[in-house]
């Protein structure tokens, strides 16, 4: 087994069986196939079934999809969660990523002092769990504790305070901003790394031409950053359309108030796992998961073929 042919050019004779290749591959391939790929395929398959008599599984074709997209009971919830999810994603794209990029741009300035300290601090929220972050903000914004109104009072803006997490028209935006607060460090780090890889000569040339500061960022650096911004956008998209924890922790499984913060992830959880008022339905759960899978695939394909191909990559 120890001898492989691959040191010599392939030209001669029969190869000995290279058993080490399947042996090296086996553990990863087995775990990955059994625990990730097979359950995904199985969930897809289950979406075409339903429970007949107790414990019996019957094939029902597209019935679950018809129910999801056609019945008042399911479609209302699905549409609500989908729209909320797009809003959640839009806020991340409009707030998290621009601020992350701006912070990275400031931190990458060579003369700036203390950048390691700032960088380390800005990433702290991202290493904490949603459970912690969710509760921290729930307490801070809570009218019972009164921290938020008290702080606003001190700067004379007390009249602005509302129980933001408790009102249907502000809860989703507030949650999105909490999530932005938590994850701003990730785009910041990725853009920071991309900015560091821009060659010094390019920046020096720009400075010789008198292009400095903000103009330098928009004219020289930003065009080089678009590919990284693309990656960040797709990461944000996949992450957001899969989000669950923050809503579950702060607003509960029913996405209070009144379902206004429901995302596809919480909808999926409630459906297959059940809750106090309804039994879990694994078949509808599988159907929702398949629909989410479709949305993510469409999003990724749109990005790969619609956006990524139009980006200009510069050799550096």
């Amino acid at each position: 087994m120890a001898t492989t042919d691959h040191t010599a050019p392939v030209a001669t004779g029969k190869r000995p069986r290279r058993w080490h290749i399947p042996l090296l591959l086996a553990p990863a391939a087995i775990v990955y196939t059994l625990v990730m790929i097979w359950p995904l395929v199985d969930s897809l398959r289950l979406s075409f079934f339903d429970e007949g008599a107790p414990g019996e599984r019957i094939f029902v074709g597209l019935q679950n999809y018809r129910a999801l997209f056609g019945s008042d009971l399911w479609w209302g919830q699905f549409w609500n969660a989908l729209v909320n999810n797009f809003e959640f994603f839009a806020i991340h794209m409009l707030v998290q990523n621009p601020i992350g990029i701006a912070l990275a741009a400031i931190l990458s300035l060579p003369a700036l002092r203390g950048k390691t300290v700032y960088r380390t601090i800005f990433f702290i929220p991202a290493v904490l769990s949603y459970v912690i972050v969710g509760f921290v903000w729930r307490l801070i914004l809570s009218p019972t504790w009164g921290i938020a109104p008290d702080l606003l009072d001190r700067i004379g803006l007390g009249f602005l305070y509302q129980p933001w997490l408790g009102q249907t028209d502000t809860a989703l935006i507030t949650l999105s901003l909490i999530s932005v607060w938590q994850f701003i460090g990730i785009p910041m780090m990725l853009i920071y790394a991309a900015l560091l890889s821009i060659p010094d000569e390019l920046i020096e040339a720009a400075e010789c031409d008198g292009i400095t500061g903000v103009a330098q960022f928009f004219k020289i650096k930003l065009p080089l950053l678009w590919p990284s911004i693309g990656i960040i956008s797709i990461l944000t998209f996949v992450g957001n359309f899969n989000a669950f924890d923050l809503v579950y922790v702060t607003q509960g499984p029913f996405a209070a108030p009144d379902g206004s913060t429901d995302l596809l992830g919480t909808f999926l959880f409630r459906t297959f796992f059940g809750s106090t008022s309804q039994l879990g339905d694994p078949y509808m759960g599988a159907t929702i998961a398949t629909a989410m899978f479709g949305i993510i695939v469409i999003g990724v394909l749109l990005y790969l073929f619609g956006i990524q191909r139009r980006l200009t990559y510069y050799q550096m």
């Binding site: 990730m36 359950p39 899969n242 999926l268 297959f272 694994p282 998961a289 990724v300």
Partner: peptide, 20 residues
């Protein structure tokens, strides 16, 4: 095949995982 999973959230297979 082995890196396909980078793009697919494993949560979507939860129902299958639970059964298994």
């Amino acid at each position: 095949y082995m890196i396909l999973g980078l793009m697919v959230p494993i949560r979507l297979g939860t129902v299958g995982i639970l059964n298994m």
